[in-house]
């Protein structure tokens, strides 16, 4: 998957749509690096049904834990067992080997609310700017 061809949530999941309305889900490289060393991933079972923005699993670093939210509704048709057994691949390669699940979508229209790559980049830029503002304030107080 090439990031430029993915869509994104505000929670930093990416979606790439394969043939047959199957959505591949993962997390962005930004999220992976913010979490740090990923040590454990819990994913749903194949065959379970999920709704858009349902928590479908958790992702753990040494001292943080985050929920994984489903960007779309549908049925889980595959989970990445390689990522479960070697979670570090999510840090190494979040867009290819580090995918989490594949979902057979109920309603591809749900994709409309997601960011495209440039919107996501912009969104990250805004976030970083907000952080930098804080740093500047601290600078002044020094």
């Amino acid at each position: 998957m090439v990031p430029e061809e993915c869509q994104f949530t505000k929670e930093h999941e990416w979606v790439f749509v394969e043939e047959g309305n199957v959505a591949v889900i993962g997390i962005s490289d930004y999220a992976a690096s913010e979490l740090g060393d990923i040590v454990y991933i819990e994913l749903p079972e194949v065959g379970s049904h999920v709704k858009q923005m349902d928590p479908i699993g958790t992702i753990e670093a040494v001292k943080t834990v985050a929920d994984i939210f489903s960007p779309v509704s549908g049925e889980i048709v595959a989970v990445n067992t390689d990522a479960v057994s070697a979670p570090e691949i999510v840090n190494k390669d979040p867009y290819e080997d580090g995918w989490f699940v594949k979902i057979k979508m109920n309603d591809p229209g749900e994709l409309d609310v997601l960011f495209d790559h440039s919107e996501y980049t912009e969104f990250l830029g805004e976030q970083e700017a907000a952080d930098a503002d804080e740093d500047d304030m601290e600078e002044e107080e020094e």
């Binding site: 454990y40 753990e60 670093a61 040494v62 001292k63 943080t64 834990v65």
Partner: peptide
């Protein structure tokens, strides 16, 4: 496995 514990979760 500290993510199991109260100070994180």
């Amino acid at each position: 496995l500290q993510t199991r514990e109260q100070h994180i979760r």
